[in-house]
Design a protein around this nucleic acid. Structure first.
Length: 670
DNA sequence: TATTGTTGCATTTTT
DNA sequence: TGCAACAATA
């Protein structure tokens, strides 16, 4: 039996509440994950609900992973079997796989990531005016989120530009279906359609979600909200946990108003507020409250802390990003000397990824281990994308995007000219590129040698597909590497031996992952197809335990930091144009930026330091920067400004830092 | 026609 | 910095 003794009264009430849908308004650091995991354990242990009928949904893989572990620990092992904890997109994928035929997809359908989608759009508009491909992608994405199909998008288009985008949307959809592929938005939109149209499937999935728990509810977008409502149906097994002050994904379609819709759509809704913060000292909380009070609110919350006031929040003015990085590192070393705690207790946060560079460099120069997360994803490396594209092609021969990616990698002397004619031919005939390679009609359109290379490639793929059916995924991957001479290819195309080694290491990591997935308990019986589908959604670095276990200073964006906490936190680049970001300086955009700052501040447990630069290079030129308005919005009494000392003083600080560090090192490693 | 080198560009946040 | 479009070579 799970114990509620370690919960405060509000948390315990949220865990015990059953019978009507529940909204938990959980302020930062108020123990929301605790509530969800205890509730899962409560449902299983005290209410006897089978774990297989519980669905817990999060937005990131990291959050899902952590929740799964914590829930399993509370459930005493075996009881947790069959429990589903995953992201919205992974759930959508499950539903879609289950009803692929009904959704008009053939088995082995591919998932295109944002990059693939951009390439596809670029192909579709080639020759047209130089419109911004990314804004077209965003428009299509918004339509899908709103459940608007291409016809309706065209009917409702207000100007020629919108009509143009809507026509592209139609062609884009046709192309996706022809390739037997879906994009990220489809992973939500198609299941919604499926459950609307197929009563039997709806029944099945409603059975599966005897109780649905949604974490970070403020991040749901319209389509996800619809999916959630469909799953709950007329049942009452719904617990959502969220905080409108931490809604920072409006740009991705998140609708904090969904908090209000909940009251409209679920009349018996019970609302419980968690207002005690267990994370931060009084001053940090006062700063956070002072800042967020400037936003308009759906629900009033008053966060309080029983911890003491703690140290003041420090503000470090700096001359340049490099200077900023230096100051942060000295500051970090100072605290580390005082507390002699793990590097993992230190985090430096920033608005956008490119800010990580000087910080990473400064940390490395001081020999401080650091981990940059959220930056370039494992999947954005070309070697990983190429190999995954090969695997996609093996499981889905209709995947034209994958075909185009690998047809000439490694070099097969099949260039743009040949591919263009192949695509034209395949387009006329309405067949996938791979299939078109072998057709007779193509022969007349191409020089003999080009045609021969294409057929050879196609035959090779067929051969490999043959193997892929018979062999386990690991073996297929090894075969692929051997056939392609992939290591040699990497060595040839890398700019330095060191780079080649890194890329080869990544391939090894991918191989290890495929091996683990194929043999893993949870994914047992999963074939290559299932693994590839899953890999598209999961970032390996997120799930790489070695990487996570490493004791290192954490560098990450404010977005990536949501849901995490650290004893010592720095937020770099507290400047106008950066935070708030120049594109979001007014209206709702500004409020979102303020929430982002709020999220950053509330990550800190004991020490918080904010820094800004007075100048920084932008687009080649050095520009002057002004401190962020958010600094002025913080209560002055909890803040301390630290102007940089004289250059000599700075050097002295650095030197003592280094000396202490080497002392420490010699003590630790004799 | 494929590949390589060069220049010129812009850079938010992520499933 | 990394990338996409373009020009020059094999």
């Amino acid at each position: 039996m799970v114990s509620l003794a370690e919960l405060n009264p509000q948390q315990a009430e949220a865990v015990r509440h059953l019978g009507t849908p529940l909204l938990v308004l959980a302020g930062a650091g108020s123990g929301k994950t605790r509530v969800i995991t205890h509730k899962i354990a409560w449902l299983v242990g005290a209410c006897g609900l089978p774990a297989r009928r519980i669905l817990a949904v999060t937005f990131t893989n990291k959050a899902a992973r952590e929740m799964r572990q914590r829930a399993a620990a509370l459930c005493h092992g075996a009881q947790a079997r069959g429990l589903t904890v995953c992201t919205f997109h992974a759930l959508g994928l499950q539903i879609l796989r289950h009803g692929a035929r009904e959704a008009g997809l053939r088995p082995g359908f591919s998932i295109l990531d944002t990059q693939d989608v951009l390439h596809l759009i670029r192909e579709l508009i080639q020759g047209g005016d130089a419109v911004d491909t990314d804004s077209l992608r965003a428009a299509i994405s918004a339509w899908k989120d709103a459940g608007v199909d291409p016809d309706r998008a065209l009917r409702e288009a207000e100007d020629e530009q919108a009509a143009h985008a809507a026509r592209l949307y139609a062609r884009y959809e046709r192309q996706l279906r022809a390739c037997n592929a879906v994009d990220f938005d489809d992973l939500i939109a198609l299941p919604v359609r499926l459950l609307h149209e197929q009563p039997a499937l709806l029944e099945h999935w409603q059975q599966r979600s005897g109780h649905l728990l949604v974490d970070e509810y403020q991040d749901t977008n319209a389509a996800q909200y619809t999916l959630m409502r469909l799953l709950v149906g007329v049942g009452h097994g719904l617990t959502v946990v969220g905080d409108d002050d931490q809604s920072v994904y409006a740009w991705r379609g998140a609708r904090p108003e969904n908090l209000r819709h909940l009251q409209r759509d679920f009349p018996g809704l019970k609302v419980i507020k968690l207002e005690q913060n267990y994370r931060s000292t009084g001053r940090i909380l006062a700063a956070a409250n002072g800042l967020i009070a400037r936003n308009t609110h759906l629900f009033e919350k008053r966060l309080w802390s029983a911890l003491g006031p703690g140290d003041p929040i420090r503000v470090l003015p700096c001359k340049s990003p490099e200077h900023e990085a230096e100051r942060i590192v000295s500051d970090l070393l100072r605290l580390r000397l005082r507390y002699a705690d793990d590097w993992g207790n230190y985090a430096v946060l920033y608005r956008s990824n490119h800010q990580s560079r000087p910080l990473e460099q400064a940390l490395r120069e001081h020999g401080i281990p650091c981990r940059v997360s959220g930056g370039t994803s494992f999947f954005s490396h070309s070697e990983v994308k190429d190999l995954l594209a090969y695997l996609r092609l093996l499981t889905n021969p209709e995947d034209d995007a994958a075909f185009l990616r690998v047809v000439n990698v490694p070099r097969r002397h099949i260039g743009p000219g040949t591919v263009e004619r192949l695509a034209a031919y395949a387009g006329e005939r309405g067949v996938p590129l791979l299939q078109a390679c072998g057709e007779f009609g193509l022969r007349e359109r191409l020089p003999a040698d080009a045609h021969r290379r294409l057929t050879r490639f196609a035959e090779w793929v067929e051969e490999a597909r043959h193997r892929a059916h018979a062999e386990p995924p690991q073996a297929v991957f090894r075969y692929l590497l051997a056939e392609l001479d992939y290591e040699d290819w990497l060595r040839d195309t890398s700019t330095s031996p060191a780079q080649a080694e890194r890329r080869i290491a990544r391939v090894g990591e991918l191989a290890a992952w495929i091996g683990r997935m194929a043999g893993d308990e949870q994914t047992e019986g999963k074939d290559l197809e299932a693994i590839i589908g899953h890999l598209a959604l999961v970032d390996l670095l997120d799930r790489n335990e070695d990487e996570r276990a490493r004791d290192a200073v954490q560098l990450m964006t404010l977005h990536a930091a949501k849901g995490l906490e650290f004893p010592h936190v720095w937020i770099a680049g507290m400047e106008e144009e950066i935070l708030p970001h120049h594109a979001n300086r007014e209206g709702t955009g500004l409020e979102e930026e303020r929430r982002l700052a709020y999220v950053g501040i509330t990550r800190a447990q004991r020490h918080l330091t904010l820094s800004y630069c007075t100048s920084r290079p932008r687009a080649g030129e050095t520009v002057d920067c002004t401190p962020s308005r958010f600094l002025r919005e913080l209560p002055a009494e909890s803040i301390e400004w630290h102007e940089p000392g004289s250059p000599a003083a700075q050097a002295r600080v650095r030197e003592t830092g280094r000396a202490h560090l080497s002392n420490l090192r010699s003590l630790l490693q004799p």
